[in-house]
Simulated scan of single mutants.
Amino acid sequence: MDLATLTLFLPACFALNMAPGPNNLLSVSNSTRYGYRTACVAGIGRLLAFAGMIALAAAGLAVVLQTSQLLFYGIKILGAAYLLYLAWQLWRAAPGAGTVAANAPLGILALTRQEFLVAAGNPKAILIFTAFLPQFVDSTHAVSPQFAVLGALFLVLEWIAIAAYAYMGLHMRRWFAEPRGKRIFNRCCAGLLSAAASVLLMARRA
């Protein structure tokens, strides 16, 4: 893979990583409620889901998702339902309930699983990997090593995005230290998650 390809790939990929979405919103919310470190560790769940999607795309198995209408809509409905569930939980959350200990193993595992399910429940993600990453693969050379490099770079940049959004949430925690501020923030996040669920429900196969 040459330098010119990487020069084009890195900024385009990072823009994709930094785009607001359900998982990045979760990083903000988790950092606000549980702390910066916990939000970053929870992001591992997202990375695992994306790594699996990249592996599927590299193996060409994403064609199944593109060609199977039932599978696509099934995943889409489940993903949207989970986002709505998270929105409902945030909407009903007590303003003083955001002080869960960051070192509690069960709390971290639950948040990691949450990140994984939100990422895995979005069929548009694997379609992005199928449509985006191959644009930077040179078909005249071995495809698998190139896909592995591009996938690894994507995950590194995604980790940076997780840290950036969690840092944003850390500052929001200072701004919304009062119960009323926490309630407003939780309900704003709930509204945005509901909007993301609505967008997901309207998504169509390419």
Rank of each mutant, 00 (worst) to 15 (best):
L3T: 15
A4P: 00
A4W: 02
A4R: 05
A4K: 09
L6I: 12
T7D: 08
L8M: 08
L8H: 12
L10G: 12
P11K: 00
P11L: 01
C13M: 13
L16H: 02
L16N: 01
M18Y: 08
M18T: 14
P20E: 11
G21A: 08
N24E: 06
L25F: 04
L26F: 14
N30V: 13
R33T: 15
G35W: 12
R37V: 13
A39E: 11
C40N: 07
V41I: 15
L47M: 10
L47C: 06
A51D: 10
M53E: 02
I54D: 05
A55Y: 03
L56Q: 06
A59E: 12
A59L: 15
A62H: 10
V63T: 14
L65R: 03
L65F: 06
L65D: 01
T67C: 02
S68E: 11
L71N: 04
F72M: 07
Y73V: 14
G74E: 10
I75E: 00
I77N: 00
L78F: 09
L78A: 15
G79A: 06
A80G: 06
Y82V: 03
Y85D: 01
L86C: 04
A87D: 04
W88V: 12
Q89L: 06
W91G: 04
W91C: 10
W91I: 07
A93S: 14
A94Q: 13
P95T: 09
G96Q: 09
G98F: 07
G98Q: 05
A104V: 12
A104T: 10
L106I: 10
G107F: 11
L109E: 04
L111C: 06
L111D: 04
Q114W: 09
Q114N: 14
F116N: 09
F116I: 09
L117M: 15
A119K: 04
A119Y: 08
A120H: 07
P123F: 10
P123C: 03
K124R: 13
L127D: 03
L127K: 06
I128E: 02
T130S: 14
F132K: 03
L133M: 09
Q135S: 09
Q135C: 08
F136C: 05
V137C: 03
V137S: 05
D138Y: 07
D138A: 09
A142S: 13
A142N: 08
A142L: 10
A142G: 07
S144F: 15
Q146C: 05
Q146D: 06
F147Q: 09
V149C: 06
V149D: 01
L153W: 13
E158G: 12
E158D: 12
I160Q: 08
A161W: 01
Y165L: 09
A166K: 01
Y167P: 00
M168A: 15
M168P: 00
G169R: 01
G169A: 02
L170D: 11
L170W: 14
R173Y: 13
R174S: 08
W175S: 07
F176S: 06
F176G: 02
E178T: 15
P179A: 14
P179W: 12
P179T: 15
R183Q: 08
N186S: 11
R187W: 09
L192A: 14
A197T: 12
S198N: 02
L201S: 10
L201P: 01
M202Q: 13
A203S: 15
R204F: 08
R205P: 01
R205Q: 13
A206V: 15
A206R: 02
A206Y: 11
